[in-house]
Design a protein around this nucleic acid. Structure first.
Length: 300
DNA sequence: TTCCAGGGGTAGA
DNA sequence: TCTACCCATGGA
């Protein structure tokens, strides 16, 4: 097994642990979290086809650095090492600028967000495709169900790390498209979501959907939202969640978790309408999602 | 059994 | 735009 360490510089006041643990993605395969270190693990397939296992940890110091330990069956060429760097920067949002959000947080004195210095970044997958499939797997299902569906996707359709078949990457669009909707349904327990995931994968493979166009920072969020809602299986909640994963925080993802959290904090346990939830976070402008996420965090 | 989960599609008004 | 009904699956 070939192993190499890569150093990456996080932005100032970056909180590695808070970023990794900010939401549920860390509990979904092929992510792993190791309390020793601590280290964030992930297995992924690079565009060239190589499967790599990554471990990311933080070295204290000033400034702190992140160490990425890469394992692969064979030595990776320089361009693939660069691809690993870019993917880790995406996953950990190392290039996202939250200065304005932090400034707003300081000026909104009546709000008490559960947010430490350098927090506010929510873990992402190495690719938008994986983020979208994860999101589809959170709709109308318990969190245990989400974990089970994602685990089966990885175990049945993901490419293994050579020599370590227990370590598998998230399946590619091509692998899911090839499997077909029926096999997907049979083996993953995605139920009616199988058709949505399969159609997404097929349309990407056949060039009808270009996910890269959604990652264009020049495009307004309203336009991205319209494109996301055109994907079968993506409604208001999923579109807002995917926009968050794209670094766009304008829209609230109002789901049973947020409704319950807002009811606990502002309604003495009594339900609060979605319109009132929207009105509550309206003052946060283009940072609404983050304000809501860190204002009314999960209790579990 | 029934309900519902980090909802969404569709038909019909 | 709004509502009712349906959608697989599994745990409570």
């Amino acid at each position: 097994m070939w192993v190499q360490e890569i150093q990456e510089a996080p932005p100032p006041a970056y909180d590695f642990v808070a970023t990794a643990r900010a939401h549920g993605w860390i509990a979904l395969q092929p992510f792993t979290w190791h309390t020793d270190g601590p280290r964030l693990g992930h297995v992924q397939r690079l565009s060239g086809g190589s499967v790599v296992a990554l471990q990311v940890g933080e070295q204290s110091g000033s400034p702190a650095t992140l160490t990425i330990t890469v394992q692969a069956a064979h030595e990776l060429p320089a361009d693939q090492i660069d691809a690993v760097r870019r993917r880790v920067r995406r996953m950990l949002r190392l290039d996202e600028d939250l200065t304005e959000f932090y400034r707003m947080q300081r000026s909104m004195e009546k709000w008490t967000l559960s947010l430490g210095p350098g927090g506010g970044r929510l873990l992402r997958c190495p690719t938008l495709f994986e983020d979208i499939v994860y999101t589809l797997c959170t709709t109308n299902v318990t969190w245990a169900g989400t974990k089970r569906m994602v685990e089966r996707l990885v175990q049945h359709l993901g490419d293994p790390l050579p020599g370590r078949p227990e370590l598998r990457a998230f399946p590619t669009p091509a692998a899911i498209a090839r499997a077909g909707a029926e096999r997907l349904r049979r083996e993953t327990g995605l139920g009616y979501r199988s058709a949505y995931v399969w159609e997404l994968a097929r349309d990407i493979v056949e060039g009808r959907i270009d996910l890269g166009a959604l990652e264009d920072p020049r495009r307004p969020a309203s336009e991205l939202r319209r494109d996301l809602l055109a994907l079968r299986g993506v409604g208001d909640y999923a579109a807002a969640t995917i926009l968050m994963l794209l670094g766009r925080y304008e829209h609230l993802a109002i789901d049973s978790e947020l409704r319950a959290a807002v009811a606990r904090k502002y309604g003495a346990g009594e339900p609060i309408s979605d319109d009132r939830i929207r009105a509550l976070y309206e003052p946060w402008g283009r940072w609404r999602y983050l304000a809501a996420w860190f204002d009314a965090p999960e209790t579990g």
